[in-house]
Design a protein around this nucleic acid. Structure first.
Length: 474
DNA sequence: CGTATCCTGAATACTCAGGATACGGTGCCGTATT
């Protein structure tokens, strides 16, 4: 008889108890059920598949969206005693890759990107393995990136079938009802769902209405110079992230840097390291910044532009206050801001006519256009014109719905938390002054307890004091 | 979709109306080129 989960936990990690969600997910997996686990960052999602891998013979195959995540994870696993771990990706040298492939059957944990796994040679190798578990890390990427950015994500369902439907664990920090539905539909399974609340009570929510672009800049500068550091300001434009980092530094003297996909990987790495080490006050970033960032003392996340949906917003504000201390998420909204996410959503999407013309005469199109590259991908994978049309139509409808939900948050006049959590089918705790400040109410920074003039007291006494202080103030 | 910038042509030469165009985000992979 196999030892209990708790005994394994004790033996492998030296912990006596599981964190919320871990045990439920493991229990479902032990019963042979595919499992979708929606757990906040820092809840110990990797422990779930590490422990499962420890308890069962065969290989745990982990599909991960980013090379940096993969490589960090392999390093961490080797340090903590899981030495039979490897990643194969474009950064792997030829020699190293040959070495791993020669002993592939000996590995307990193998990390691949969807693109790598989709390659026929690689898939053939993996088909030879005895898989104990297939893990889809950051599973929301299937929905967020699949259709119009990284189409290999949409092949995972077919690949899973070719691997004889191995037991599958899907991991993410944020997934509303439609995202959950889409993930499981794509992966062709009806899993057990283990979901923790996405609420983050220590993050004060705020929407700030401004008249226009200059008004937004003024407000941003004022907020950034008053708030406790460090913080993150999100943009939907690389240029504006860069310009604003420089401007904020000049205007306020704060140590500010920009982070986006236009920087070379050396700079990206350096800036990320500096931020993690506390050498930066504020990072002006695009959505490129975030996954895999686990800094616990981020005090504020400001959105200069409107995110495309509440799930992205939840992911991004979730990077504040990991230490449980009071933090704030501020959305700056100017009339018409919804046009930018709308346009971005359209930019990678072919219209019906283009699809029709491409399928009729594919050779007449230039291969440089990313939209055409997507169509070429789907056509080469035998996906019909009708299916592609239907997919992009559905995608458009879904993006519009998601943006409308985001707009409803921006325009909310009653309780932002209630509005936010409703998108994840969650009830909100009762609204208090410590909860949020919608766009129609002014933000009192002192009330949030985050101004630099009023440094926070120590963590243990903070929570009661903070609520009590707020109650008195109002 | 909407803003900013560039371009064009007509009228003027200390210019400007209005149209065309570019910009706006996320990452794998591997091949061709320096």
């Amino acid at each position: 008889m196999m030892e209990s989960l708790t005994t394994s936990l004790q033996r492998v990690f030296g912990f006596d108890t599981f964190r919320t969600g871990q045990e439920a997910a493991l229990t479902a997996l032990e019963q042979g059920q595919d499992t979708l686990a929606i757990l906040p960052t820092g809840a110990g999602k990797t422990l779930i598949y590490q422990l499962y891998g420890y308890r069962h013979p065969g290989c745990v195959l982990v599909i991960s969206p980013l090379l940096s995540l993969m490589n960090d994870q392999v390093d961490r696993m080797r340090v903590t005693g899981f030495r039979r771990s490897a990643a194969i990706n474009s950064l792997t040298s030829y020699v190293e890759r040959q070495e791993i492939l020669r002993h592939l059957g000996d590995y307990q944990f193998l990390f691949l990107s969807p693109e790598m796994l989709a390659q026929p040679q690689m898939l053939a190798q993996v088909q030879q393995l005895q898989l104990s578990l297939l893990v889809i890390d950051e599973a929301h990427c299937i929905v967020q990136w699949g259709p119009d950015f990284r189409p290999e994500y949409l092949l995972l369902g077919a690949i899973r079938s070719k691997l004889q439907q191995p037991l599958t664990l899907m991991l993410t920090a944020t997934a509303g009802k439609t995202t959950r539905h889409e993930i499981t539909k794509q992966l062709r399974t009806t899993p057990a769902i283990v979901a923790e609340s996405v609420n983050r009570p220590n993050i004060f929510l705020d929407v700030e209405n401004v008249a226009d672009e200059p008004g937004k800049q003024v407000r941003l500068k004022s907020l950034v110079s008053q708030l406790q550091q460090p913080g993150v300001v999100y943009f939907s434009s690389k240029q504006q992230a860069t310009d604003t980092a420089l401007w904020l530094h000049q205007e306020t003297g704060l140590k500010a840097a920009a982070y986006h996909a236009g920087l070379d990987s050396e700079d990206r790495f350096k800036i990320q390291q500096q931020f993690m080490a506390g050498q930066l006050d504020v990072i002006c970033a695009t959505s490129a910044f975030g996954m895999g960032i686990d800094k616990n003392n981020v005090r504020y996340v400001i959105h200069y532009h409107l995110p495309a949906d509440l799930e992205s917003y939840a992911q991004e504000i979730g990077r504040a206050g990991r230490d449980g201390k009071p933090s704030v998420a501020i959305l700056l909204y100017a009339p018409g801001d919804e046009q930018l996410p709308l346009a971005l959503g359209q930019s990678n999407r072919p219209d019906e006519e283009t699809i029709q013309r491409y399928y009729a005469h594919p050779q007449q199109f230039s291969g440089d256009d990313p939209v055409i590259q997507l169509l070429a991908f789907y056509r080469q994978h035998g996906i019909s014109q009708a299916a592609v049309t239907q997919m992009f139509t559905g995608r458009e409808r879904e993006r519009n719905r998601a943006l409308a939900q985001m707009m409803a948050y921006a325009r909310e006049t009653h309780c932002l938390r209630e509005r936010w959590l409703a998108a994840f089918d969650e009830q909100s705790p009762e609204h208090t002054v410590a909860c949020c400040s919608p766009g129609n109410t002014p933000l009192n920074l002192n009330a949030v307890g985050l101004t630099r003039q009023q440094p926070m007291v120590t963590a243990t006494t903070e929570r009661e004091d903070w609520v009590a202080r707020l109650q008195r103030l109002f």
